[in-house]
Design a protein around this nucleic acid. Structure first.
Lengths: 198, 198
DNA sequence: CGCGACGTTGATTTGCCTCAACGATTGTGG
DNA sequence: CCACAATCGTTGAGGCAAATCAACGTCGCG
C-alpha cells in the first residue's frame, strides 16, 4: 500500500522509467513528506541545499538577491514540478538562491545523501534525471533566447501563453521579477495589451 | 589501439565513468570523426539535428535567427565541448538553431540512433550525460541570472573572466551577439574599460 | 588593387527604470 | 468588528542605458 501523498510522485516516475516492486519500495523509503506555510523558507542563500523537492500541492519560488538587494526570480514550481538549488545540491557549495512558499505547500523531499545512494542502487534513476535535465536544459535555453531577442511585451505574452496556470496564481510583481522587468513597467504593458484587445 | 583522434574524447569520458575494454570498444564503434571548414554548417535551422558533436579541435557556434533576421548566439564550443540542438536531437523536431564553424574544426559525432542505443547498451552513459547536463543546466541558470541582474559592462567582464580562451578567438561582434548587445555598444564598453585601466 | 568583414565614433531615439504618489484589497490585532 | 498596516497594482514625470543609423578607418584576402 502506497501512502496517498506519494502517489503523484510515483506517477511522475512512471512516465520515465519502470520500477520493480522492490525498487519502488526502496525509492519510497528515501522520501520525506513535508508541509510549508506561505512565506516559509525551504532554503536560504548561504545554507547548503540539502534536498531535491517535488511539489505535491502549492507553489514555491526560487530567487536570487543581487548585490543591490534586488530579488530576481529564477523559477516557480507548482504541482508536479521539482525545485532546488542544483549547484549547491550537486557540489555541496553554499546555495546562492532562496526558496520559499508563495502558498501553503506540500512537498516530497529526497535528501542529498539518499539522492546519491539512489543512483548507485537503481541506475534507472540516472536515466530519469538525465531525461528531466534534458527537458530543463531545453527550457532554460529557450528562456535565454527569449531574453535575447524579445522586448518586454513579447516576453510577457510568451510567458502567459506557456505558463497560464502559473500566471493566474502568482502576483504580477513576481512575474515581473521573473521576466526581468519592473512591476511598474509590466503594468504599462498590460494596459497597452488591454487597449489593443478592443 | 585507439585511433589518436579519439583519445581526447576517451579522456573526457573517463572523467565521469569507467568503461571496460569491451564497453570502450563498443563506444568507439558509435563514433564518426569529421572535419569542417570555416563557415561550413554542421546544422541548419529547419533540418533535424542528427548528431551530438564533440569538438576535438577548432571552434563552433550555435545561433538562432529571430523573426527580424537578427542572429543571436546561443553557445560557442571549443576543444573538449559538446554542441548540438538538444531539443531537436531529443525529440526529432526540426531544429531552431544553426551550427557552423568559426574556424576549421574537427569533431567527433554520435548519430542520434546510435546515441539512444548507447544508453540502452551501457547505462553508465545515462550517468555521464546526467552529470554533463547537470553542469550545463547550472551554467545556463547562471547565464540567466547574469542577464537579469547585470548591466552590459558587467556581463562583458564576467564573460571574459569565465571564457578568456573563447574571448581571444572569436570576433567581438560575435561576443556582442552572445551577450545580447550591439557590437557598437560593446565597442563603447571596451573603450571605457581601457580608459579606466590607466 | 579593391572588396568585404570588422571595429570605432558620434548623433539621435527609445525601451525601460526610478521615484513618488495614490487607490484597492487583504489581513490582522485590539 | 472595526482600524490600521501591509501588500499589491496603477499612473505619471523625468532620466538613463542601450539601440539605431550613418559614416569612416583598418585590415586581410581573392
Amino acid at each position: 500500500m502506497v501512502a496517498p501523498e506519494n502517489k503523484p510522485l510515483l506517477d511522475y516516475v512512471s512516465r520515465f522509467i519502470q520500477l520493480t516492486a522492490e525498487e519502488e519500495k526502496y525509492f519510497l523509503s528515501t522520501l520525506k513528506h513535508r508541509r510549508y506555510l506561505k512565506r516559509q523558507f525551504l532554503l536560504q542563500a548561504g545554507d547548503e541545499c540539502k534536498h531535491e523537492n517535488y511539489v505535491v500541492k502549492g507553489c514555491l519560488r526560487a530567487y536570487f538577491v543581487d548585490p543591490n538587494g534586488t530579488p530576481h526570480i529564477i523559477q516557480f514550481a507548482i504541482e508536479d514540478w521539482w525545485i532546488s538549488d542544483l549547484a549547491s545540491l550537486h557540489t555541496g557549495s553554499p546555495s546562492t538562491f532562496n526558496i520559499d512558499a508563495l502558498e501553503d505547500t506540500e512537498v516530497i523531499q529526497i535528501e542529498r545523501s539518499r539522492f546519491n545512494e539512489l543512483f548507485e542502487k537503481i541506475p534507472k534513476f540516472d536515466r530519469m534525471f538525465r531525461l528531466m535535465l534534458t527537458n530543463a536544459f531545453i527550457a532554460h535555453q529557450q528562456r535565454i533566447i527569449d531574453n535575447l531577442c524579445m522586448p518586454a511585451k513579447d516576453r510577457y505574452l510568451a510567458f502567459i501563453k506557456r505558463y497560464r496556470n502559473i500566471e493566474q496564481r502568482v502576483p504580477q510583481n513576481q512575474i515581473a521579477s521573473y521576466l526581468g522587468m519592473t512591476p511598474e513597467f509590466l503594468s504599462q504593458i498590460r494596459k497597452k495589451i488591454a487597449a489593443e484587445n478592443l
